[in-house]
Amino acid sequence: VTVHVNRYTYHFDNPEEAEKFAREMAKRLNMTVEIHGNTLKVE
């Protein structure tokens, strides 16, 4: 599972951890999480 935050890319083996990380980053940056299959984008 890949998480994109701005120009950074993070890889996770565990989808739940990836989503938790993405949501935490989105909250911190006041952004939203978009899910595209195995890719989560924080925008």
Rank of each mutant, 00 (worst) to 15 (best):
T32V: 14
E16A: 12
K20W: 09
Y10T: 01
K41L: 14
E19I: 14
T32W: 05
D13S: 10
Y10W: 10
N30T: 04
I35A: 08
F21R: 00
P15D: 05
V42D: 04
F21C: 05
A22E: 00
H4Q: 12
A22R: 02
Y8V: 13
L29D: 03
E16W: 12
E17K: 08
V5N: 02
K41C: 15
I35E: 04
M25A: 06
Y8G: 05
Y10A: 01
H4K: 11
N38F: 04
M31N: 03
N30E: 05
V33C: 03
N6W: 13
K20Y: 09
V42K: 03
E19S: 07
V5Q: 02
A18M: 01
G37R: 04
N30A: 05
H36I: 13
R23M: 09
H36N: 12
G37D: 07
V3Q: 01
M25L: 13
P15Q: 12
E24D: 10
F21K: 00
T39F: 09
E24A: 13
F12R: 00
K27G: 08
G37I: 06
L40S: 04
M25P: 00
L40A: 04
F21S: 00
H11Q: 07
T39C: 15
H36C: 14
M25Q: 05
E24T: 09
H36Y: 12
T9A: 09
V3Y: 00
E19A: 09
N30K: 06
P15N: 08
V33G: 01
N6T: 07
H11E: 05
F12L: 01
E19G: 05
E43K: 14
G37C: 10
V5T: 03
A18P: 00
E34W: 10
I35N: 05
N30L: 04
T32G: 05
L40D: 04
A18C: 02
N14V: 07
D13V: 08
M25I: 14
R28F: 08
E19N: 07
E43L: 15
M31A: 14
G37T: 05
N30G: 14
T39M: 12
V33K: 01
V5P: 02
N14Q: 06
T39Q: 11
E19W: 15
Y10I: 05
K41I: 15
H4D: 03
A26C: 07
E34F: 14
Y8M: 13
M31Y: 06
N14F: 07
L29N: 05
K20M: 11
E43T: 15
T2G: 02
T9W: 08
L29S: 03
D13A: 10
E17C: 13
V3N: 02
E24N: 09
F12N: 00
N6L: 14
T9H: 09
T2I: 12
D13N: 10
V1I: 13
K20R: 12
A18H: 00
V33Q: 01
L29K: 03
Y10R: 03
N6F: 14
E16Q: 11
T32M: 10
N38Y: 03
L29Y: 13
R28M: 12
K27A: 13
H4S: 09
R28W: 09
F12H: 00
A26W: 02
G37K: 06
A26M: 04
T2E: 07
E17P: 02
A18Y: 01
N30H: 11
R7N: 13
E34V: 15
A26Y: 02
V1N: 04
G37M: 05
E17M: 08
R28I: 11
R7H: 13
T2S: 08
H11S: 06
Y10V: 04
R7S: 13
E43Q: 14
N30M: 06
K27D: 10
E19P: 00
K27V: 10
N6M: 13
I35Q: 09
K27E: 12
F21H: 01
Y8P: 00
Y8I: 13
T9D: 03
A22N: 00
G37S: 04
N30R: 05
V3T: 01
H11N: 06
R7L: 08
E17T: 08
K20T: 10
E34S: 15
R28K: 12
V5Y: 08
M31D: 02
N6A: 09
R7Q: 13
V42P: 04
T2H: 13
E34I: 15
V3G: 01
N30V: 03
T32E: 06
V1D: 01
N30I: 02
N38P: 07
V33P: 02
T32S: 09
V3L: 02
V42R: 02
L29I: 03
K20P: 01
P15C: 15
K20I: 12
H11F: 13
T32C: 11
M31S: 09
E24K: 12
E43A: 14
D13C: 14
M25E: 06
K20V: 11
E17L: 10
R23F: 11
K27R: 13
E16Y: 12
N38K: 06
R23H: 10
T9Y: 09
H36T: 10
A22I: 04
T9G: 03
V5M: 06
R23N: 09
F21G: 00
A22G: 02
N6R: 08
A22M: 03
R7V: 06
K41Y: 15
E19H: 13
M25R: 02
H11M: 08
I35W: 14
N14C: 10
L40Q: 03
Y10L: 04
T2A: 06
T9R: 09
H4M: 13
E17N: 06
I35C: 13
R23T: 07
R28N: 06
L40M: 12
P15M: 15
R23C: 15
P15V: 14
N14R: 06
M25H: 03
N6S: 10
V42N: 04
T32P: 05
H36L: 11
Y8C: 15
K27T: 11
R28L: 13
K20A: 12
D13L: 09
T39L: 10
Y8A: 11
A26D: 01
G37P: 05
N14E: 06
D13F: 07
Y8F: 12
L29R: 03
M31W: 05
E16G: 08
I35T: 07
E43P: 04
E24V: 08
K20D: 08
V5I: 13
